[in-house]
Design a protein around this nucleic acid. Sequence first.
DNA 1: CGGCTCGTACGATAACTCTCGTAGTACGGA
DNA 2: TCCGTACTACGAGAGTTATCGTACGAGCCG
Lengths: 120, 120
Amino acid sequence: MTPAATAAGTRDLPHPAREEIRLEGVLHALSDPVRLRIVRDLAVDSDELFSCSYFDLPVTKSTTTHHFRVLRESGVIRQTYRGTAKMNGLRRGDLDALFPGLLDALLAAAARQVSRLGTG
Amino acid sequence: MTPAATAAGTRDLPHPAREEIRLEGVLHALSDPVRLRIVRDLAVDSDELFSCSYFDLPVTKSTTTHHFRVLRESGVIRQTYRGTAKMNGLRRGDLDALFPGLLDALLAAAARQVSRLGTG
DNA sequence: CGGCTCGTACGATAACTCTCGTAGTACGGA
DNA sequence: TCCGTACTACGAGAGTTATCGTACGAGCCG
């Protein structure tokens, strides 16, 4: 056990501060179909937290870990440990403050594309 | 000279049809700083066409060609030959029809980030 | 024709990404 | 204490990307 993680539940994960979030990074994070779908699912209830295993993704667990990390490091989601689970939530407040209307436009565009092409 | 390019000015370039444009592709195209800047410059006047050399980009000519092709193949811009120059224009009509409000939100977000961080 | 400008094509390289499997750690409960 | 669940870390492979340099083609103008 690492010294920094001694106190129970203190395993913190590195997140960019609000001011460090870059538009290019957000767009890159959302340009992958798996990650776009994760964000769409998270956005159904922005105040709720979902564990990684809540999502039914067409990739293995280690790939899932990778995608969640990309989302976290780009500032799109916030991840916190809760016992053995890792809970995920959209950083809607930060994103809306930085880029008003962007997240809504992106989610609307994604929904529109799904209804146009089927559940792709 | 290829047979298809015999008639002067007829060198056509492959563009995706409106229905073929994918949100993920658009986001990926815009997740590169060089390309985001091109689109921002094009959006100043969406009805105008600009030659590739109009832009002052921090990369070589061949890299510039690469970035314009990515933008064209993702459906963000339309390219047409005019004499020795290749003119570029935003496909605002197609994008607005597919994803209403998205392009405006993206441009506003980019402008906001520039004014926050300086001309990066 | 000869040269100039604009842009392309091709090849190369280094870096990054997506994916996986295996092995391992952290936590909660029996 | 031992086991199961949830997730991570590491390493590897295949594919994509961003960048460049050089060489070339297409059109314009003297």
